[in-house]
Design a protein around this nucleic acid. Structure first.
Length: 114
DNA sequence: TGGGTGACGAGTC
DNA sequence: CGACTCGCCACCC
């Protein structure tokens, strides 16, 4: 069976543009679980098996690389973001507002299966 | 079946 | 301004 929740999270995560980041809460709202931002992170945790998912482009609402610790336990996440032109300082995304990508604004929910 | 878990978020002190 | 607490809810055991 298909767990639409996780699948949607994966879809959105896969659509995050290069050099941009988004927040768990933004994805959560987009998939219809505004109050389940934690589940987005949980889904990302399971997305390690999904090479198409750019989990490193997902940070918390503060622009903090909360999931970096889960990226092999190294600075992989930080390095990946830097390689995309995103500035990282003290585990925090610089110019977060500038690189923030809100699926609710940039993406059409109608393009997804309801 | 039930309960614990957690890569969050928002509110409070 | 910083640190802490609580609620959330889909997934795993």
């Amino acid at each position: 069976m298909e767990s639409n929740f996780f699948d949607r999270v994966y879809e959105v995560a896969a659509l995050i543009p290069y050099g941009r980041v988004t927040s768990y809460g933004a994805i959560a709202r987009f998939v219809g679980a505004a109050n389940s931002a934690r589940m987005v992170g949980y889904a990302m945790n399971a997305s390690v098996n999904r090479p198409d998912i750019a989990a490193h482009r997902v940070v918390n609402r503060n622009g903090l690389l909360s999931g970096k610790h889960h990226f092999g336990g190294s600075t992989v996440m930080e390095d990946l973001l830097k390689s995309e032109g995103i500035k990282i300082t003290n585990n925090q995304v610089q110019d977060f507002e500038n690189v923030f990508w809100d699926p609710n604004l940039e993406l059409n929910r109608e393009d997804f299966v309801k």
